[in-house]
Design a protein around this nucleic acid. Structure first.
Lengths: 189, 189
DNA sequence: GTCTATAGGTGGATAGAC
DNA sequence: GTCTATCCACCTATAGAC
């Protein structure tokens, strides 16, 4: 675990932070190369073209997400508290006035490959299924209160967080995100 | 009103639909030129650079939005019905699996001018102020039901619709938008 | 696995004729 | 106002040395 990060990982780290800031069509290999401290040809060695990079980004992001919600499930029993922690996952990119990778990729979708699009859909499906499960369990246990199907509530929950990121970013005002996130949670109690 | 549309308007129409599909960094003047049936040099005559185009797009979009909500206010008395019509405004781009111009611009913000950013904030402010007013009036008249401040509810409402656009687009499934929009409305009754 | 060098293309933008 | 022609910067991508 103390092993030095390899170049491919460093490229993905840098690429992800750039994409979250300017979108997938707002940067070039030269930008990544400069930040990582290598040449553009080296990036092409690891990711032959930009599509490969996009697919690698979304796939790694999905894996990280699975890890994150697994940790929430492990360390938290109360379902309301789980949801609160989920909102924190979505608040972290907002600290830099960025959006999560999923939101950025979703607006750039039309210019990306079908495989990247499938990866994005899978990521959002994982989000929605986890939310639906937690919402459903929480209601049955009496900790959460909402009307209608859990799957609808899950969609509303996720959509609200995504929109909250856009609004916070547009106003350069983190409190807009916090206000919305707090509102979703309090509506469930 | 039957006057033939001038070139500047035709450029803006085409540019807007392209931006809503691929984002502001996903197209070039050549793409617009081809669709409009002119040369790129002609676009530069009307909009010297891309920033001018961005500012013109957001400013015109804002004016159109003002017109649209004024019409809702004119033809509708019931505040719940006003909100329902507002969701229809946000559902129309989704029919082509696009997002509204505001959502697209908000993700591309980092690569755009400060003036464009201000225009976007003004657009969203107009959205939020209208929503807050309608929500507040509706609750005082007894047609709407929600807890907490109207300004918070307005933020949640708008964020939900924006996120709903992203999800519908990502899954290429309009019903995701409809599900969320219907959920927001029914939670208010 | 990373580099230099470079190909081949497209980007935004301008000059000047009509 | 729109065109042709063109500039130059930058882009993605590859070849081949080390």
């Amino acid at each position: 675990m103390t092993k030095t990060k390899n170049t491919a990982e460093a490229i993905l780290d840098t690429a992800q932070s750039i994409v979250q800031e300017v979108g997938f069509n707002g940067f070039s290999y030269a930008h990544i190369a400069e930040k990582v401290g290598i040449r553009t040809a080296s990036i092409h060695y690891h990711f032959p073209n930009k599509e490969d990079l996009a697919e690698a980004l979304i796939s790694r992001y999905h894996r990280h997400f699975i890890t994150a919600i697994a940790q929430i499930d492990t360390e938290t029993q109360n379902n309301l508290e789980k949801l609160r922690k989920f909102t924190l996952l979505y608040s972290s990119p907002v600290q830099d006035y960025c959006t999560c990778l999923g939101v950025m990729i979703s607006t750039d979708l039309a210019t990306l490959s079908g495989k990247t699009g499938e990866g994005l859909a899978q990521l959002f499906t994982a989000n929605l299924e986890w939310l639906e499960r937690v919402l459903d369990q929480g209601r049955r246990e009496g900790h959460l209160n909402f009307e209608g199907a859990a799957v609808v509530e899950a969609h509303q929950f996720l959509a609200s967080l995504q929109g909250a990121q856009l609004l916070a970013r547009s106003f350069r005002d983190i409190s807009r995100f916090d206000m919305i996130a707090k509102g979703i949670i309090s509506a469930l109690t």
